[in-house]
């Protein structure tokens, strides 16, 4: 069952830069996919088109059967509710506790307070941070902060979890831990995961599907890919 289908997709920014060119990709439900490529190769652009932060200049991008290229601005929020998103910079609210930060995602979409609590607890359990739920972000390590972000991204049980260099700011051991959590979410909850990364060790170790972008063009798509192979050219 395919969750994502990108067809003949182009993205040309206003300044004339072609960030993505003639991209064709199908991603099935439950897959774990790495997106790799040099800096400026279009990884973030590809990801942004999936959650309709950017509109393709041309082509189709189906997410859950909906062509998000055609989605009106006023309807984007419906798409976002089905997608969890994690970034390199954590985007946590410093004045809210861990619990409140995760609950924020549910409050923001109008859930009832009594429905929020069990979901937040469950999400925090999934990332192993239940005992830190009263801490504030500045009392946490980088890895812990990123786990809070993951909890916030999965708290509404999305079908798709998109991560743009989630380990970019973390040291190797912590990075492995984060990817381990993502892998667990992928296996236990069946969430489809797309992760853009520069981290060779992780890609090589995980043996997942790897999409390689070069100057906006899909230069490789390996079922059990590794980073080194593509880096050599």
């Amino acid at each position: 069952m395919k969750l994502i289908e990108v067809k003949n997709c182009y993205k040309v920014y206003n300044n004339g830069v072609t960030a993505v060119a003639d991209l064709n990709v199908i991603i099935d439900k439950g897959e774990f996919v790495f997106v790799i490529g040099a800096s400026g190769s279009g990884k973030s652009t590809f990801i942004k088109m999936l959650y309709r932060e950017e509109k393709p200049s041309n082509g189709k991008v189906f997410v859950g059967g909906v062509n998000v290229a055609k989605l009106r601005n006023s309807k984007v929020f419906k798409l976002r509710r089905k997608i969890g998103i994690v970034f390199q910079d954590f985007k946590l609210l410093p004045k809210l506790t861990v619990y409140e930060n995760v609950a924020f995602a549910l409050e923001a979409i109008g859930l009832h307070t009594k429905d929020i609590r069990p979901k937040v607890i469950k999400a925090l359990e999934n990332v192993g941070l239940k005992d830190k739920m009263r801490s504030f972000p500045n009392q946490l390590s980088g890895g812990e902060q990123q786990r809070v972000c993951i909890a916030r991204a999965i708290v509404n049980e999305p079908k798709l979890l998109i991560c743009d260099e989630p380990t970019g700011n973390l040291d190797p051991d912590i990075s492995k831990e984060i990817v381990g959590i993502l892998d667990k979410i992928n296996k236990e909850l069946g969430t489809t995961i797309i992760m853009a990364t520069h981290d060779r060790d992780i890609v090589n170790k995980m043996k997942k599907r790897v999409l390689l972008l070069e100057n906006g063009v899909l230069a490789g798509d390996d079922k059990k890919g590794s980073y080194i192979v593509h880096e050599s050219n």
Binding site: F77, K82, K91, F104, A108
Partner: peptide, 16 residues
């Protein structure tokens, strides 16, 4: 700003 950004990311409706 950051609060609004997160609200947009998690799918708050425009009205809210």
């Amino acid at each position: 700003k950051s609060e609004i950004e997160i609200m947009r990311l998690v799918g708050s409706s425009n009205i809210s």
